[in-house]
Amino acid sequence: MNGPEISSLPEGMQRVAQVLRASGHAHLPQRLDDAARTAQQAADALGVQLGQIAKSIIFRRREDDVAVLVVTSGDRRVDEAKVQSLVGVIGRADADFVKSRTGFAIGGVAPVAHASAPVTLIDRELFRFDEIWAAAGHPHGVFRLQPADLERLTGAPVVDVVQGGA
């Protein structure tokens, strides 16, 4: 994907593509025919396991109103108590908060290229897979990566933040 191809993408996907290109990531965003607003929709569209979808969950840290991004496997549920033990008290983030802090609409929140840098945590459950897929800034956009790429691209720690984990 070269410059003109990137410029034809929706704005959020352009931001993600620029970050991926600048970091030397091998896989730029792809556009899906149908929206993949949920991990299940993305897995179905890509023909992969639900767990291979790196879903981005945004919380609102109460003490300073900073976005907390938890990237976890599509087949897992975030344990908010575990997240709070790492970053402080969190609450739910509504659509306006998500859009204002990340620059992305819910259903297209990428793990990179946020409007404001979030506190980011990567759940270790993603490392069960050699290949994962993440949202690319738009409900129709995804990109392929390996779990270690996610760690490299975000600089975030790999932790246990899901229900039922050790």
Results as ranks from 00 to 15, higher is better:
Ser100Tyr: 04
Ile57Gly: 00
Gly107Met: 05
Ala166Ile: 14
Glu131Tyr: 08
Arg15Asn: 10
Glu11Ile: 07
Gln84Asn: 09
Phe127Leu: 03
His138Arg: 10
Ala148Gln: 14
Ile122Gly: 01
Gly137Leu: 09
Ala54Leu: 06
Asp94Val: 01
Asp123Pro: 07
Gly12Thr: 10
Ala135Gly: 12
Phe97Val: 13
Leu9Phe: 13
Ile122Tyr: 06
Arg152Leu: 05
Pro147Ile: 07
Arg124Tyr: 04
Asp160Thr: 12
Gly12Trp: 04
Ala39Lys: 00
Gly51Pro: 01
Ser23Arg: 13
Gln14Met: 09
Pro4Lys: 10
Ser23Met: 15
Gly141Ile: 12
Asp96Arg: 12
Arg128Ala: 13
Lys99Pro: 00
Phe143His: 05
Asp75Thr: 01
Val161Met: 11
Ala81Ile: 03
Ala95Gly: 04
Ala166Phe: 06
Ala136Asn: 06
Ala117Pro: 12
Pro4Gln: 06
Leu32Asn: 05
Asp34Met: 11
Ala134Met: 06
Thr38Val: 01
Ala134Pro: 04
Leu150Ala: 11
Ile90His: 01
Leu150Cys: 13
Ala113Cys: 14
Glu80Leu: 13
Ala136Lys: 01
Arg21Thr: 10
Lys55His: 05
Val16Asp: 02
Gly103Pro: 11
Phe129His: 14
Ala113Ile: 06
Asp130Ser: 14
Gly51Trp: 01
Gly91Gln: 01
Gln84Ser: 14
Glu125Val: 10
Ala148Trp: 11
Thr72Leu: 15
Ala117Ser: 15
Phe127Gln: 04
Pro147Glu: 06
Leu150Trp: 10
Thr38His: 00
Val87His: 10
Asp75Ala: 08
Arg101Val: 13
Val162Glu: 02
Asp123Phe: 04
Met13His: 03
Asp79Arg: 03
Pro29Lys: 05
Arg76Pro: 03
Asp130Met: 04
Gly88Ile: 09
Glu11Val: 06
His140Trp: 07
Leu69Ile: 09
Asp64Tyr: 03
Arg92Pro: 00
Lys99Trp: 05
Gly47Leu: 02
Thr72Arg: 07
Thr154Val: 15
Gln40Asn: 05
Pro139Val: 05
Val87Lys: 12
Gln14Ala: 02
Asp33Glu: 13
Arg77Ala: 14
Ala22His: 05
Leu32Arg: 05
Thr154Leu: 07
Asp130Pro: 03
Arg77Val: 11
Ala115Ser: 14
Val142Ile: 15
Leu86Gln: 15
Pro147His: 07
Gln84Gly: 08
Met1Gln: 09
Pro10Glu: 04
Ile57Pro: 00
Asp160Lys: 08
Arg37Cys: 07
Arg62Ile: 08
Glu125Ser: 15
Ala81His: 10
Arg144Lys: 15
Arg128Pro: 00
Asp64Gly: 07
Ala93Glu: 11
Ile122Met: 07
Lys99His: 09
